[in-house]
Amino acid sequence: MIRLIARRLLVSVPLLGVVSFVTFVLVSLTPGNAAYTVLGASATKAQIASLSRQMGLNKPLVVQYGTWLGHALQGDLGRSLITGQPVTQALGQQLGPTLSLVLLSLLVTAVGGVLLGVWSAVRGGRLARVIDSVSFVGIAVPSFILAIILISLFVLKVHAFPASGYVPISQSPLEWIRSLILPVVALSFGGVGIVAKQTRAAMEDVLAREFVVVMRANGYPRRSIVYRHALKAAAVRVLSVLGVTFVGLLTGAVLIESIFSIPGLGSLAVQASAQSDIPLVIGVTVTFTLLVVGANLLLDIAYMALNPQIIHR
């Protein structure tokens, strides 16, 4: 397992290099630069040229990237071209809200999706059809539409939740969860549907297997067969879906953060891209990449824990 972890971490180093370089090139190739943002609509060409020089944006791309990489290797991701804030500080401030949103959504997606999928597979009949319908709705309704509906129902009509913003857990655990309930529901609703459908298919497959029939014949309790044995056998397939769902949640968080005005990495990415703030855009991209690499690593470890044979493949 340690070899696998080491291998994954080694692979992630060039991956981060490629991601940061591609991001750098793509942002640099878009017309305009951060000097246009700072100077605003009434700036003259001379002002823009002067500030671009001050920011070092007139240097060749390779030189700019090389300078950034040199500092990045020493743990310095630079400063925002717009605010002057250290990128690591900005990321540190806005990572918490995104992690809270995405991890809670992943939890809801996993628990909700697996429970619905298992119930649907075990009970079948009307319940299965209801769960199927709910799953379809979850997949079909875009998260931003759901977010707007949730705001109008639970903020404006019922006044149960705040309309926007984020409260750190250190400030108030209760307000933290209140500030995240609607965004989490909006973000995870589609994922619950997907995971439920996959879980149901996997469980139906497993429950039809010979070992289940034998266990039933030997009088094993139904709950034990379903939750201890069948679910474990179906878990690898469910986990792979959850891995993909996690990446979907990360990208979906960008929109949800914007709608609920959550100061997370998603809104930071949107803002930095709109302002051509290259160091910040790269910082966010690298952080997202690290999160995906980390999630995949955890997934691999979970696979191995469920089925040790996987390590030999």
């Binding site: 705001i151 903020v155 404006l156 309309a163 926007s164 005005s261």
Partner: peptide
């Protein structure tokens, strides 16, 4: 001063007293 990009959210925030 908060940054709320979505105008509907801004209105909801004022309606809810935030």
């Amino acid at each position: 001063i908060r940054v709320i990009a979505d105008p509907n959210t801004a209105l909801a925030a004022i309606e809810s007293g935030q």
